[in-house]
Amino acid sequence: MKQQNNTKTALIYAVDLLAIRPYSTQQLITKLKRKEYAPEEIQEAINRLTARHYLDDTDLCQRQYQAYINEKHRSIKAIKYKLMEKGFSQSDIQNAQEETDIDEIDYEYTVCLRLLNSRYIPSKSDKLKCQGYLYRKGFNYSAIRLAIEDFFYNP
């Protein structure tokens, strides 16, 4: 790895990034590596940012989890996967899930029904095709079954 030609240190560049939007530690490390900062300089920047509470993966994971729940577009499984993609640890994701006070089956049923209503028409849709769509999105089978039943038989 080589030091950047410009005058910005890894710390300054990281602060500039964090001024725009929050990043997980892993996302920030990836961005700094792409800019070819030395690993020692990256680690020093991460340590300083964490010590000053500019980086807090636990808090950011909780806020992201809650934001995804409020959007009502994803299954719990898809939310967890999305958070893992962003570099959050399993323990942070588990803590965020435990902190969020929702009934998961009720949440997934509501989102399934919402997706079905926005994408399909009961009289013109195939039940198995709708089930497959929801299953591929990662929804719980019992939530899918309840949503399909209400969508097709209680319009």
Rank of each mutant, 00 (worst) to 15 (best):
M1D: 02
Q3T: 15
Q3L: 14
Q4T: 15
N6I: 13
T7V: 12
A10V: 01
L11Q: 08
L11M: 05
I12N: 05
A14Q: 06
V15N: 05
D16N: 13
L18T: 07
A19Y: 03
I20M: 04
I20K: 09
P22K: 04
T25Y: 00
L28Y: 02
L32K: 07
K33Y: 01
R34M: 13
E36V: 09
Y37N: 09
A38N: 11
E41W: 05
E41H: 10
E41Y: 03
I42S: 04
A45D: 02
I46M: 05
I46C: 07
N47W: 02
T50L: 09
R52W: 06
Y54N: 06
L55H: 06
C61G: 01
Q62M: 06
Q62E: 07
Q66L: 11
Y68L: 14
Y68F: 13
Y68Q: 13
I69D: 06
I69L: 07
N70E: 08
R74M: 13
R74L: 15
S75W: 00
S75K: 02
I76C: 06
K77G: 07
K77D: 04
K80M: 01
K82A: 02
L83H: 01
E85S: 03
S89G: 03
Q90P: 07
D92C: 09
D92T: 00
E98S: 11
T100P: 06
T100W: 01
D101S: 11
I102R: 00
D106C: 11
E108Q: 09
E108N: 06
V111G: 10
L113N: 11
R114S: 15
R114F: 10
L116C: 07
S118P: 09
S118R: 09
S118I: 12
Y120R: 09
Y120F: 15
S123T: 14
K124F: 10
K127S: 15
K129M: 15
G132F: 03
G132S: 14
Y135H: 10
Y135P: 06
R136N: 15
K137F: 10
G138T: 04
F139V: 12
N140E: 10
Y141L: 13
A143M: 03
I144Y: 01
R145N: 10
I148K: 02
F152W: 02
